[in-house]
Design a protein around this nucleic acid. Sequence first.
DNA 1: TTCGCAATAGTCGATTTCGACTGATAGATT
DNA 2: AATCTATCAGTCGAAATCGACTATTGCGAA
Lengths: 189, 189
Amino acid sequence: MPRRALDNPLVLAVLGLLLEHPTHPYQMLTDLRSRGGAAINRGTLYDVVEALVAAGWVAPQGTERTGNRPERTVYALTDAGHDELVRRLDSQIRTPQREFTQFLGAVAHLGALGPDGAVDALTERARRLSDRIEADGDHLADVVASGVPRLHVIEAEYALGQARAELAWIGSIVDEVRAGSLTFPTRED
Amino acid sequence: MPRRALDNPLVLAVLGLLLEHPTHPYQMLTDLRSRGGAAINRGTLYDVVEALVAAGWVAPQGTERTGNRPERTVYALTDAGHDELVRRLDSQIRTPQREFTQFLGAVAHLGALGPDGAVDALTERARRLSDRIEADGDHLADVVASGVPRLHVIEAEYALGQARAELAWIGSIVDEVRAGSLTFPTRED
DNA sequence: TTCGCAATAGTCGATTTCGACTGATAGATT
DNA sequence: AATCTATCAGTCGAAATCGACTATTGCGAA
């Protein structure tokens, strides 16, 4: 029975999902994954839901059964859960955190690749990133055109904006390394 | 004795640190933290180092002792460790991952705050973010002016760029909500 | 000078997270 | 009709992560 599990990033995701409508964990998983939610572990999700129930933010709504697959317990947001969701949302938006993305961590040691290796890797990233930006942009336009309220896709807009900024930055770094204005120290500081 | 720990983000950070010079875990901790590295758990760090030793990427170099504080074991990067570092760096730069930051997760459910709550929270974030951008920008300029090679601070430049893009995005969203061009659906999809 | 407090290092049991396993059903293939 | 595969749902022991605890030193205040 998890207790510390309440500061897992999944907590917000699950609460947010249940705000839309009650569901069972397995459905949450497919929803979260389809929304780009990277590899979420099933076991972890069940643990989180259990912790949420213990915290009183979520309550079992009843059970369903299709055929005789395992029984599915449907959970719904409680009032306390709704309050908690709003509280977390508000505080996470208000206070910018320094987030440590993988790329940031890798860039910190770019020197280890040497100028050629760095240009090479960055160029490939730029290519892939720009493909993705185009694909995501198109997809976003389609979705909005199909009548989905824009509010429901702004996180995708945000992500797209960040990706565009990253692409621009990569471009400028590659140019500078090529032009020799960003030099790679040979050995030691 | 950890075995799966080798895909922890700390691995790259530790390997990168040891590329600069051998040290003991406690020092790594202070270094990582001072470089903005958010709350890193001490116990976890020791576990990771142990796993790195088991993997042969890092080797104890000897022990030091100041006063009679606990003995400090100094670790250094092995050749295999250096290779592994380069491999990881290269692959993490080449392949852009969809990273799930807290803010992204929160923005996804912005609707739950209602138009006023959203504007309020976003405005405060924008203010804090812009303060930080200014402070970080100044700091960066100072550091570079003091002769530190730019390559050693590009991750800070990158982070600054992302922060600026975020700030611009927040500004546009706030404007649109105020202007009424981004509407908040009242109930349900 | 003595007390308290912050910093120094590290250990280890408790908690959380993971992912392999189970076992059933619907649809496709031969 | 028999078999194969993908999807559905969830459980549980093993592995990773955490954070409370220990013990020493050095500094500033009382």
